[in-house]
């Protein structure tokens, strides 16, 4: 029953992160507030014509989520580093990937919640009409969020333990996320305008491929990264 033990470890680590976050509400609240602020600023930069706003909505929502997400990822390892809890976590017997999976679960919840807020605010501010194909849009967002969370967590495991974590994480992460951003933004844009060119399917397939490649690569490489 090794997998049951692993799964328990994953849950414990995720639950620990979520509890810490919940106790110090400041973390999530300020990250979400920042995301909304970025959205408003995008509105100033691109508005006020309704059509221009509508065209840029998908891009603004994803960039806001990205900028705010970077802060969340660094935080998720910082808490452990400040309290010196990462070494005991590593000494604990069992597979290393459970640490990653636990962190991923907690971060996914965190980013998912933030993305939900950003989308609701974005739809309102940018005067978007929700299309009939909203389930596909939801799927697209979920796939994009997986890519964002997986690589964000993986790179934060490194950058949070360096001298220049604030700069280093976006520097490493943003170029890697170019396919996610292009797919998520272009796919959302297509779905919002009724997908006349039938391109949304291609973007969803690209995101699926990206997620599969980098989830496996991260699971393989995480052990090397966390132990060093």
């Amino acid at each position: 029953m090794a997998w049951r033990e692993d799964w328990r470890r994953v849950r414990v680590i995720a639950w620990k992160d979520i509890t810490t976050e919940r106790r110090s509400k400041a973390g999530f609240n300020s990250v979400a507030a920042l995301a909304v602020t970025i959205l408003v600023l995008f509105g100033f930069a691109l508005g006020p014509e309704a059509q221009a706003l509508r065209d840029a909505a998908a891009g603004a929502v994803w960039l806001a989520a990205l900028f705010a997400g970077v802060l969340a990822f660094n935080r998720s390892f910082q808490v452990e580093l400040e309290s010196g809890a990462i070494e005991p976590l590593l000494l604990y017997p069992g597979s290393r990937w459970t640490i990653l999976a636990g962190k991923l679960l907690a971060n996914a919840l965190f980013v998912g919640l933030m993305l939900a807020i950003v989308v609701i605010v974005g739809v309102t501010l940018f005067q978007v009409t929700i299309p009939k194909a909203w389930p596909s849009l939801l799927g697209l967002f979920a796939l994009g969020a997986v890519g964002l969370v997986v690589l964000g967590t993986f790179y934060a495991a490194m950058s949070s333990r360096t001298r220049a974590r604030e700069v280093l994480l976006p520097l490493l992460l943003f170029p890697m996320l170019v396919p996610v951003l292009l797919a998520a933004i272009s796919g959302s844009k297509a779905l919002l305008t009724g997908d006349l060119m039938h391109e949304a399917g291609a973007w969803i397939r690209l995101l699926v491929a990206y997620d599969i490649v980098f989830v496996s690569a991260t699971l393989l490489a995480f052990e090397h990264v966390i132990e060093a």
Binding site: L151, Y155, P175, M176, V178, P179, A183
Partner: peptide
């Protein structure tokens, strides 16, 4: 890890 991930990403970036 960063070097390997970066190289893996290149074809995906190109496609996208």
């Amino acid at each position: 890890a960063v070097g390997a991930f970066g190289a893996i990403n290149v074809p995906i970036v190109y496609m996208s």
